[in-house]
């Protein structure tokens, strides 16, 4: 098929370009700061070196924080992808009058300030004394709450215009409900699910405010470790850690979108 002639006005292109620069500039600064040759976190860097990258790679505190965050984000992403997809399907198909209110309720964690949510969960966990305060499961629950709305939103978007008669057609052609869901619905909403996946991972990996209240003592996730390091040392190791965080997010985004499009290629 031929590409349509672009009809985007120049103004929009300029604005988009400007936004891109504003968004990308801090990233560039972090990367350059992480490659700083000097002793302190400064910009512009005093010469380039891998000094602080090496320091990050040999720091037990940063490395364990990095892998802890990775594990946490992975678990949170898996859970919220499944839960969020199911919730989105329910919300899209339920004819119940309460589903609008429920959608708003599920979206709350996005609009609530992280500090408020973190504090609320902390108070809830400690006062009820259910053994979740400052534990991994407690932190995971919090991250699932925060990331789920992103999955719900992207999957809901991909369900707009999804025609239920596709599933019904599959059923009457002999597919069980599960087969029809797997072979039809899931395939069609896959891009939405993978987008949700990426969002969830990024949001969980970078989650700071809520984590502040719920992190397990001596097991700080990366954002907290970076914060603590900067507060007490002001070393460029934190910026070097930032480089690795950015790299992980970029790689996971590419991998996830590849997985989806590869499946497309296999199907076609």
């Amino acid at each position: 098929m031929m590409r349509e002639e672009s009809a985007i006005p120049l103004v929009f292109k300029v604005i988009a370009g400007f936004a891109l620069v504003v968004l990308l500039l801090p990233l560039v600064i972090v990367v350059l700061a992480g490659l700083n040759a000097g002793d302190y976190l400064t910009f512009p860097p005093q010469g380039l070196s891998l000094r602080w990258v090496k320091s990050f790679l040999s720091s037990p505190v940063f490395l364990s924080a990095y892998f802890y965050s990775f594990l946490l984000a992975l678990c949170a992403t898996l859970i919220s992808t499944v839960v969020g997809t199911l919730a989105a399907l329910y919300l899209a198909r339920s004819s119940s009058k309460t589903s609008g209110a429920m959608r708003g309720f599920f979206m709350l964690p996005i609009v609530l300030p992280g500090v408020v949510l973190g504090l609320a969960l902390y108070v809830f966990f400690t006062t009820t004394d259910i053994g979740l305060a400052r534990t991994f499961p407690g932190l995971l629950i919090c991250h699932v709450l925060v990331t789920c709305p992103f999955v719900i939103a992207t999957v809901t978007a991909s369900l707009v215009g999804f025609d239920i008669s596709l599933e019904e057609a599959a059923r009457s052609l002999g597919a069980s409900p599960w087969t029809a869901f797997r072979k039809i619905t899931l395939r069609i909403i896959a891009p939405g699910i993978s987008a949700g996946c990426i969002f969830a991972f990024i949001v969980s990996f970078g989650q700071f405010e809520t984590t502040l209240f719920l992190a397990v003592p001596n097991h700080e996730p990366l954002p907290m470790a970076m914060y603590i390091s900067l507060r007490y040392k002001f070393e460029p190791t934190a910026a070097a850690a930032g480089i690795f965080a950015i790299a992980l997010v970029v790689i996971s985004t590419i991998v996830t979108s590849r997985l989806v499009s590869l499946r497309r290629v296999f199907k076609a």
């Binding site: 008669s165 019904e168 057609a169 009457s172 597919a175 069980s176 409900p177």
Partner: peptide
């Protein structure tokens, strides 16, 4: 259920 009815339907 629909899948056991051996029916063809066009929407």
């Amino acid at each position: 259920p629909p899948e056991k009815r051996d029916i063809g339907i066009v929407f």
